[in-house]
């Protein structure tokens, strides 16, 4: 079990707001690491730093690969994606006008671009490109099967129901052949049955593909059920780090979710549920 991603002393400031304050953590291969915390704790900001949307003010984000470490804070977004960090969004961002299948093929852009000699060969239908494209379609189909969208392969992605769009977004992220999959609230808006399916999918991604999963999630049943490791943020600071069992009983976590002492007896899941009711939607 080696660290796949290490985040060291990450800080990010927006004007007067310190969104992330000296954050350190590690995410391992073949494990699901969850980042939880109340609203505004800086969870999505961490993702934005990891995927090149923001340049962190301070800190080192290292992706460990067999061929040597890679410092993500120095790379452009598409280079980070090429290095193997894939991401989904809280508000789904598919390519809505493309078909479901095409969403998965465009995710394999780099493989295809190389095979097609930057489209020149593709234009003339060279055999090498056709073979690469056939493989890409095959790979995309295998993912459609795993997320149960084979019948919808040719529909525009924007026309899928909400839950299916979420699954497609994960499949698309997986089609970039990532080493680290970052999921921003994948269970948001899903019904309990869909949440259970999602949980099974994430487990299979962890076990079959053997990649690391980094998860932001508010749904505590999902988080507690699948995480191997949980990091709790509050006001940009890490307040707890450990297994679900450790985090659940950590007094700091309970305080962060519920405020001071009087609710201390409540377990974190209920705390989170309470919290969720007054969350603006």
């Amino acid at each position: 079990m080696s660290a796949l991603l290490t985040v060291e002393h990450l800080s990010m400031r927006f004007g007067g707001l310190l969104a992330i304050d000296d954050l350190c953590f590690a995410a391992d291969e073949r494990r699901i690491t969850a980042i939880i915390g109340p609203n505004g704790a800086g969870k999505t900001t961490v993702f934005n730093c990891l995927t090149g949307f923001y340049r962190p003010d301070v800190g080192r984000l290292t992706l460990h690969r067999p061929q040597g470490p890679l410092y993500l804070e120095r790379l452009d977004g598409y280079r980070i994606a090429q290095a193997g960090v894939a991401r989904t969004f809280q508000n789904i961002r598919l390519f809505p006008a493309m078909s479901v299948l095409e969403n998965l093929i465009v995710a394999q852009h780099n493989v295809l671009m190389r095979a097609s000699g930057y489209s020149v060969a593709g234009l003339f239908g060279a055999a090498r490109f056709r073979r690469a494209e056939a493989e890409a379609i095959e790979f995309a189909r295998s993912w459609l099967e795993r997320v149960d969208l084979v019948e919808r392969a040719d529909s525009p992605a924007g026309s899928l129901p909400y839950g299916a769009q979420r699954r497609l977004e994960i499949a698309r992220a997986m089609c970039t052949r990532p080493r680290l999959l970052c999921l921003d609230e994948p269970a948001a808006g899903l019904n309990p049955r869909e949440s259970a399916e999602l949980t099974a999918l994430l487990r299979s991604v962890r076990d079959r593909e053997g990649i690391g999963v980094l998860l932001i999630e508010h749904d505590m049943s999902v988080v507690m059920g699948i995480s191997d490791h949980i990091i709790v943020l509050d006001y940009g600071k890490k307040i707890a780090d450990g297994t679900p069992e450790q985090v659940r009983h950590d007094p700091n976590v309970i305080r962060a979710y519920l405020g001071e002492a009087e609710h201390e007896a409540l377990p974190a899941e209920i705390a989170a549920d309470l919290r969720r009711d007054d969350r603006p939607t």
């Binding site: 995927t51 090149g52 949307f53 452009d76 977004g77 598409y78 994606a81 090429q82 894939a86 991401r87 969004f89 961002r93 598919l94 390519f95 465009v106 995710a107 852009h109 780099n110 698309r172 089609c175 970039t176």
Partner: peptide
């Protein structure tokens, strides 16, 4: 933005 996240 999403395009760059799939490596384009």
């Amino acid at each position: 933005a999403m395009a760059s996240l799939v490596g384009i």
